[in-house]
Design a protein around this nucleic acid. Structure first.
Lengths: 278, 278
DNA sequence: TTCAACATAGAATATCTGTTCCATTTATCT
DNA sequence: AGATAAATGGAACAGATATTCTATGTTGAA
């Protein structure tokens, strides 16, 4: 089984596993996928504990290691450990790493770096700015809603469509407005004062999102908004609203912070419904 | 010896060692300084191997651990190990941790912290893992496509819907598959070998995404995939594919890294079309 | 100097470790 | 279907493990 040579670093081990994945017996495949999904467990666990977690026999782990060309499990484990060792680079090493990376930086990887930076910056900004009290208020309002109407068009649509998916999984009644082909106005006209509209819109505020929200506001449907400025037309009509300013790269704004807030709202609302306050 | 409480994370352990360093006996001081200088050794080594390296007796290591308030050496070792496994704290641990430091932390703000951490961890992971060369290949393939078919369902749909929006803004012909109400199969059956399918799917792989991709692959339509493991059914049929593992919080996976990669692909493809390589 | 309290070294020990082996099941080919 | 090979489960085993224990060494106060 020791054809070619035994992988000594994590990257080549992964390649080898991928190569052989198809031709591997059932239990060994099970181990392979567990190993790739929980590398830390392999690094620190014992044969017994890992076998338990991966639901295989200890001997299967040894056999897997041998089939990958290692002498035994411990030998394989070394690779997973060195992966963790190498990850904690000190300052100099990190700099060196970056320098090498920059040399063969392609245009696409520069773009990727830009978008990742924008995402991280946006997340950090929101972490500092987000008011827990406001979050509580919004959760409270949404948790009481009969149906949550999700309004978001254009760049906000991915956010609302994700929320709709997550709310669905959590068993929370919701209605996604703005799906292509849907008749937005008609859908929203069913919203009552017992429902809540969650409206998401950023500059330049999609006129339909704004007009739909305003029409509903006129009918006293409560609104929770996510937007990017106090001057947003959504701010004055919302019961409560969040200011999320996303950093941008090349004119494309990140969505990381908004998404993080959106996920928070969905999970927190589900949590609140399970354990209402008082 | 167990005054106050035993440090459970590396930072507070370091503080405690610093506090007591002066009042520590000779050999225990020796262990303390070795531990801080070679934390990786402590994490991975055995009592015997560390004792040898630090030039003390095995029993001294145990005594040191106990004098710091731990039950034994293994207990202390756990702290050094958890330093290396950058696991995201789960909900309970996080709440506990925050309670001690931030008294007015609300449930929702804890959830928000969790999602933000997951997002940042995912971004960092991908930054380390993403291969620029692979990115180039994918951009090249996509840039040459007549029409780009975007295939993503469930949790991947927000990503493809964003890409569709962005491609649209950039004037790149694309077709979004999987929109609610759309007849996916029919739409995709128009794809030819001059087009490209960008398929996004994560475990558990939405069966429709997979079957659609496989059917198209049988007709030799090139596929670029974003997925989360070499075992993904998309991996073997894709011309090139990206492995993106998103950290999750409370069972909800982040989408930050995938989104960042998606934005990169859209912008890079537009850029490439404007300045084709030779 | 004497004594007591503390610190250390090193051997002893009971537990846990990875590995091997073989009977049984499952798959593959004739 | 039958025969042959491969894969698996689970128990047995030898070696390594962390920890405890005791004799010895060291320090500092009376």
């Amino acid at each position: 089984m020791t054809d070619a040579e035994t992988p000594r670093d994590f990257a080549s081990l992964k390649t080898r596993i991928a190569e052989r994945a198809g031709a591997l017996p059932r239990r060994l495949t099970q181990v392979a996928s567990y190993a790739l999904e929980h590398p830390d467990e392999i690094a620190f666990g014992t044969v017994a504990s890992i076998a338990l977690a991966a639901d295989v026999q200890p001997s299967t782990l040894v056999r897997f290691a041998q089939s990958m060309g290692y002498q035994g499990f411990s030998d394989l484990q070394d690779v997973f450990r060195s992966r963790l060792r190498d990850r904690i680079l000190n300052y100099d090493e990190r700099l060196e790493h970056l320098r090498q990376h920059d040399l063969n930086a392609t245009k696409a990887s520069v773009i990727f770096g830009g978008f990742s930076d924008a995402a991280q910056k946006s997340l950090n900004d929101l972490r500092e700015k987000l008011d827990p009290a406001k979050l509580e208020v919004a959760v409270e309002i949404l948790a009481k809603a009969d149906t949550i109407y999700l309004v978001g068009l254009r760049r906000s649509f991915p956010i609302t469509s994700y929320m709709s998916y997550a709310f669905g999984k959590l068993g929370i009644r919701n209605h996604l407005i703005g799906a292509m082909g849907g008749l937005a106005q008609e859908d929203l006209s069913f919203a009552t004062t017992k429902d809540v509209i969650l409206a998401i819109s950023f500059t330049p505020y999609a006129s339909e999102t704004v007009s739909l929200s305003q029409a509903s506001h006129a009918r006293h449907v409560p609104i929770v908004a996510i937007t990017d400025s106090p001057f947003s037309p959504l701010a004055p009509i919302a019961k409560t609203w969040f200011e999320v300013t996303e950093a941008n790269f090349e004119g494309f704004r990140s969505m990381a912070a908004t998404l993080s807030l959106a996920m928070t709202l969905t999970v927190a609302v589900a949590e609140r419904r399970r354990n209402p306050k008082i």
